[in-house]
Amino acid sequence: MIRLDAVVKQFDGKRRVVALNDVSVSITRGEMVSIVGPSGSGKSTLLNLIGCLDRPSSGEVSIDGRRLSGLDDDELTRVRRDTIGFVFQFFNLLPTLTALENVALPLHLRGWSRHRARERATELLGVVGLAQRVHHLPEELSGGERQRVAIARALSVYPPVLLGDEPTGNLDSRTGEDILALLTDLHARLGTTIVIVTHDMRVAQSCGRTIAMRDGQVVGDVRR
């Protein structure tokens, strides 16, 4: 499903920083994987490469057997929107749109009709337990509710891959547990491949596989 071969990512600034150094990882369909490691270990960079948000300096990233290196920006965007859903630590909801509109947004971007997009968004908000909050603006929702909206948005086209960058990092522990339960439930029900970057060991341990990183390299890969 997801494959990284000898991936290197370096940032050229005043000092060259090697964020990923010769990383090779393979994630199969339906896995729920956590990536852990200290700050600066390269775990978010790894997630950005998997999510087609960034390109490697060298090496190859493939999703569903499709190599990403030859794709232009728009093709990369199409892969992203058809294959990947994102859940961010800081939700990244558009503040001027309601919960329903935020969830419907990726569908509109795919050219769905207004009616169809709203129908799907309403359904997804129901799935994440926000059926009563569809017309609320992000500022009118709690942190947990915002993250649920973000998850609903990530699932809007039922993508095969869901990526989470510290999805519970900005939430209190109880709300974090709720979100984790939701993700585990969605994984079980929909069979979505989930990759989560986290500092939280409880989140890591609830995943079937944990990849540990340090100094830009994979230093551990545990399956449960």
Binding site: R81, D82, L93, L94, L105, P106, L109
Partner: peptide
């Protein structure tokens, strides 16, 4: 910038 970044992250094409 972030707003437009989010748009692209969730599938918005450049032209959109």
């Amino acid at each position: 910038r972030r707003e437009f970044g989010v748009l692209q992250a969730i599938g918005g094409l450049r032209r959109q």
